[in-house]
Design a binder for these strands. Structure first.
Lengths: 352, 352
DNA sequence: GTGAAAGCGCTAACAA
DNA sequence: TTGTTAGCGCTTTCAC
């Protein structure tokens, strides 16, 4: 049995040298047909390609990455893909990455800063072409100093794109326009006649939430509506926050007629509280949320929500990351404009 | 300015040679302190470590992987992390992997076989230590021949762990015990007095679904209950399937009193159909589901569901993958025993 | 158009 | 305990 056949049988350690030998060319030539960025005489090219196919030869990406060329891997740190919002963005990024011939290395930071740091280092060690961070420290209103320093260490070699911001670093920012999002929501509710609008969930240490609150106040002012301290219920981004928040609103002297939930999970909590109080949506209360995840379509009634155009958003994140990785020029800050998706959870305010 | 300082400033291209030179030792010694698997004189060790810290040196994982050692990267192909089930498993795998010092390379096959194949090849090119496939072709009752052949090409070099099966390959199988899961659900319902039990959603081309149906029939037989053809509604694994399926059940001459939904998404559809028909859960119908994702806790009432012990499941998948990668012995087939989580969507059958 | 040769950054025999 | 050396598999000058 020929040596070549043996190797094929084992499918083991086939390298460009094996291909080169059998094709009667040099390894360099095989490399040329692999990368397809230099001329090779057609007949040789075909011969090489035939052998590649014959042996199911797959070039070693590690070796490729080791030599000069930038590795075609994108590292993504997401807060937690179990949250549908991140799942949407991550999948959108992956699809866009693959279209561009890139692979994705994914990490979930799970809300733990230490984990986040280790992941940053791991991705660096993998010498990914660029990193994308979704959520976590880049959501902070006040950037974590230690984290900033760590990022600055990496960022000389590996560009980083963040879904929020990181003050004191040169990260590329691709953000959702949180103010615009609040505008859309508030205008929709005000158009429907709502004047008592509550805002439930979210922490003021989170940039986008902070911006939303600021915008919320501004819009009230613009419409000459009073700001009620008790209509703003801070908290987390989960069901419980929404549920407890709405329960609290039921204690208000004058109840709101509409509720803006900080995300879909919180909105579900709000809805349940409303139902438990024997009220209806949207007849008694209008409920809106941010994120437009699958949850909005699984609730009864289906939720009016702010959509982030995930496909577009993911594409923009990835485009920026790849451009940065390949040395292209990209704006430091880009804004993605959200849109409103109106469903059945909002209706004109009930006549009093 | 010393050369060393320049490099530090740029944080560029620092290698073990830079560290070695400044520490006055050889690269091999630096490597030894890095891998920590050979004795190095304490004073040298400290000196090297100090420099590593000083320059924030991070070894190049690509180069590491290129030399003999197996790469500490696990490739995961999941069907779609936007489905909470996969999100749970993926996160569990990632946590387990990281504990073992491994990184995860994630791909979403999105139900497209072509994409799945390309991802398999990409992971192979990355020379991951092992691959884990969750959903997709490994769920098929009848394994796809082309896919099997592709997997067999890789599997000589890179072991593969699958959440289902792939006939004609040497993949390690770590499966949920689907039969046991059905047992738990049926026994629970039968204990509650239900005798008319429907099964909504799922395709018979999917192994686990097929097994569930077989078990369903067997259990009916064991309890001397009649099998009604019209109580089994095949379909997909989504909301619509559940919704339409339940609508169809409302057309039955004799309606079931309990419904087993193939997953949580289908269960939500079932619930909505029930509500739209003016019926209640669990008073009029008991509803149970598989997967125990976050949805079960977001519904009203909260859903009784089969839990797969994700943390355990992920750990087992990863353990198997790592063991296989490192040449350890592992059983070809392992079963994970699911458990039943009883919530408010099930109740004793109403008196007739 | 093509081959020889150097090098990417690390690990691991093999000596010493 | 340590340094020297030889790869790992690829890409890319640099000659020819």
């Amino acid at each position: 049995m020929a040596v070549e056949n043996q190797k094929a049988l084992e499918n083991r350690n086939i390298t460009i040298y094996d291909i080169a030998r059998e094709a009667g060319v040099s390894a360099a030539t095989v490399s040329r047909v692999l990368t397809n960025n230099a001329n090779v005489r057609p007949e040789k090219k075909e011969k090489v390609q035939a052998l590649i196919k014959k042996y199911n030869f797959k070039p070693n990406a590690l070796a490729r990455g080791l030599s000069d060329t930038k590795s075609k891997v994108l590292g993504i740190i997401a807060a937690d893909v179990r949250n549908s919002y991140y799942a949407e963005v991550v999948v959108a990024c992956e699809v866009a990455a693959r279209e561009a011939g890139y692979t994705v290395l994914l990490c979930n930071s799970l809300g733990e800063t230490e984990r986040e740091k280790r992941q940053l280092e791991t991705l660096y060690e993998q010498r990914v072409g660029a990193m994308i961070q979704l959520g976590g420290r880049v959501d902070d209103l006040v950037s974590d100093t230690e984290y900033v320093e760590l990022v600055n260490q990496m960022t000389n070699n590996i560009p980083m794109v963040v879904s929020g911001k990181l003050d004191g670093t040169l990260c590329y920012q691709v953000q959702i326009d949180a103010m615009k999002a609040m505008d859309l929501l508030m205008e929709h509710l005000i158009d429907l006649g709502h004047r008592q609008i509550a805002m439930v969930g979210g922490g003021m240490d989170v940039l986008s939430t902070y911006e939303k609150l600021q915008r919320y106040k501004q819009i009230l002012k613009n419409y000459h509506l009073d700001f009620h301290e008790e209509y703003v219920i801070e908290g987390g981004y989960d069901y419980q926050t929404g549920y407890r928040g709405m329960n609290a609103l039921f204690e208000c002297e004058k109840m709101p007629t509409a509720v803006v939930a900080i995300n879909d999970y919180a909105a579900v909590g709000v809805m349940h509280s409303i139902y438990e109080h024997g009220k209806r949506i949207p007849e008694d209360f209008s409920v809106v949320s941010y994120d437009n995840t699958q949850l909005t379509r699984l609730m009864m009634p289906r939720l009016t929500s702010i959509d982030y155009r995930y496909e577009f958003y993911g594409r923009k994140l990835v485009e920026t990351a790849i451009a940065a990785s390949e040395g292209g020029e990209m704006p430091r800050i880009q804004l993605v404009t959200p849109r409103l998706v109106v469903r059945e959870s909002t209706a004109p305010v009930a006549e009093v």
